[in-house]
Simulated scan of single mutants.
Amino acid sequence: MNHSEKIKRNEFLKNLGIKGAALLAVYCTGASLSSCQNESAITPDATGELLSIDLTSSAASPLKTVGGYIRQNNVVLARVSTTEYVAVTQTCSHEGRKEIMFTNNQFYCTAHGAVFNKAGVGQNSNGRAGIKVFKVSISGNMLTVTN
Results as ranks from 00 to 15, higher is better:
residue 128 R to K: 15
residue 91 T to Q: 14
residue 54 D to P: 05
residue 105 N to K: 13
residue 75 V to E: 06
residue 55 L to N: 05
residue 103 T to F: 14
residue 69 Y to S: 05
residue 39 E to W: 05
residue 102 F to V: 03
residue 41 A to T: 00
residue 91 T to N: 13
residue 45 D to A: 09
residue 77 L to I: 01
residue 94 H to P: 00
residue 89 T to I: 13
residue 66 V to E: 15
residue 38 N to R: 11
residue 64 K to N: 09
residue 58 S to D: 15
residue 118 K to W: 04
residue 116 F to Q: 01
residue 122 G to C: 02
residue 39 E to I: 00
residue 48 G to T: 02
residue 128 R to C: 09
residue 92 C to L: 01
residue 90 Q to H: 05
residue 56 T to I: 04
residue 79 R to L: 08
residue 115 V to Y: 15
residue 66 V to W: 12
residue 75 V to H: 02
residue 89 T to R: 12
residue 52 S to K: 15
residue 41 A to D: 02
residue 72 Q to L: 10
residue 37 Q to F: 05
residue 33 L to S: 03
residue 48 G to M: 08
residue 44 P to K: 11
residue 59 A to P: 01
residue 110 T to M: 15
residue 66 V to M: 12
residue 35 S to Y: 14
residue 57 S to T: 08
residue 63 L to C: 05
residue 108 Y to V: 04
residue 85 Y to S: 00
residue 62 P to V: 09
residue 59 A to E: 15
residue 55 L to K: 03
residue 47 T to N: 14
residue 35 S to H: 15
residue 121 V to L: 07
residue 125 S to I: 11
residue 71 R to T: 10
residue 45 D to G: 06
residue 73 N to Q: 09
residue 121 V to S: 09
residue 113 G to L: 04
residue 76 V to T: 03
residue 78 A to E: 08
residue 52 S to E: 13
residue 61 S to I: 03
residue 119 A to I: 03
residue 127 G to P: 02
residue 63 L to T: 01
residue 68 G to P: 09
residue 49 E to W: 00
residue 109 C to K: 05
residue 77 L to P: 02
residue 94 H to N: 08
residue 72 Q to Y: 07
residue 44 P to G: 10
residue 88 V to G: 10
residue 117 N to L: 06
residue 124 N to G: 06
residue 93 S to F: 06
residue 72 Q to W: 09
residue 87 A to T: 07
residue 123 Q to G: 11
residue 95 E to D: 14
residue 99 E to T: 02
residue 73 N to L: 09
residue 55 L to C: 04
residue 31 A to D: 14
residue 74 N to Q: 10
